[in-house]
Computed example of a mutant assay.
Amino acid sequence: MSTEEGRTLAARDAGFARALLPMLLADLKLMEDFRYQPEPPFSFPITVFHGAGDDRVTEEGSQAWRALTTGAFHKHVTPDGHFFLRTDPSRDWLLRGIAAALPPPPPSFNWRAS
């Protein structure tokens, strides 16, 4: 969602704006206070999904996740931009990619448990 889209949504729905504001402020606070502290890489696999048309996260930025694991690293790229989840084909592509990246459930897993 672009800034303009956010303004349009907020203008149409004040409740939406009130609900969204605390989350946005919390995100801004996290970004302001965060300082990266180098640590040894993880050993688990990392899978990255990147939009080639993204104007916020570069190809190099998405590839940088590789340095954070000694395990497997997989990167999947869609031609869409930063908000690629907003299109049905990309959403389906992402869900298939996540399903492929996750290990299968154990044989004892009960899909129908409530």
Rank of each mutant, 00 (worst) to 15 (best):
S2C: 02
T3K: 11
E5D: 12
E5P: 05
E5F: 03
G6V: 06
G6E: 13
G6W: 13
L9Q: 14
A10T: 07
A10V: 05
R12Q: 15
D13T: 07
A14H: 08
G15F: 09
A17G: 10
R18H: 11
R18Y: 10
R18D: 13
A19I: 09
A19R: 15
A19Y: 11
L20Y: 13
L21W: 12
L21S: 11
M23P: 02
M23I: 12
M23W: 10
L24A: 12
L25G: 03
A26Q: 13
D27W: 07
D27K: 05
L28A: 14
K29C: 07
K29V: 09
D33A: 15
F34A: 07
Y36C: 05
Y36N: 03
Q37F: 06
Q37E: 13
E39T: 15
E39R: 15
P41N: 05
P41M: 05
P41C: 01
F42C: 06
F42D: 08
F42W: 11
F42I: 08
P45E: 06
I46Q: 06
T47M: 08
T47R: 10
F49C: 04
F49L: 12
F49G: 04
H50D: 00
G51Y: 01
G51I: 05
A52P: 09
G53F: 03
D54Y: 10
D54L: 08
D54H: 09
R56A: 15
R56N: 15
T58C: 04
T58G: 03
G61S: 04
S62G: 14
Q63P: 01
Q63N: 01
A64I: 07
A64M: 09
A64H: 09
W65H: 04
W65A: 04
R66M: 09
R66Q: 14
R66V: 07
A67L: 10
A67Y: 08
A67W: 08
L68Q: 14
L68S: 14
T69P: 08
T70E: 11
T70V: 06
A72H: 15
A72L: 12
F73Y: 15
H74N: 15
K75T: 13
K75H: 13
P79W: 04
D80W: 08
G81K: 02
H82W: 06
H82G: 00
H82K: 06
F84Q: 02
F84V: 02
F84K: 03
L85W: 10
R86G: 11
R86Y: 11
R86P: 06
T87W: 03
D88E: 14
D88Y: 06
D88H: 07
D88S: 10
P89L: 00
P89N: 04
S90V: 01
D92L: 13
W93E: 04
W93T: 01
L94W: 01
L94Y: 00
L94M: 12
L95A: 11
L95W: 12
L95H: 08
R96T: 00
I98Y: 03
A100L: 02
A101E: 00
A101Q: 00
L102P: 00
P103R: 07
P104Q: 09
P105V: 08
P106H: 03
P106E: 05
P106W: 01
S108L: 12
F109R: 15
N110P: 09
W111S: 13
W111V: 08
W111Y: 14
R112P: 01
A113N: 07
S114W: 13
S114E: 14
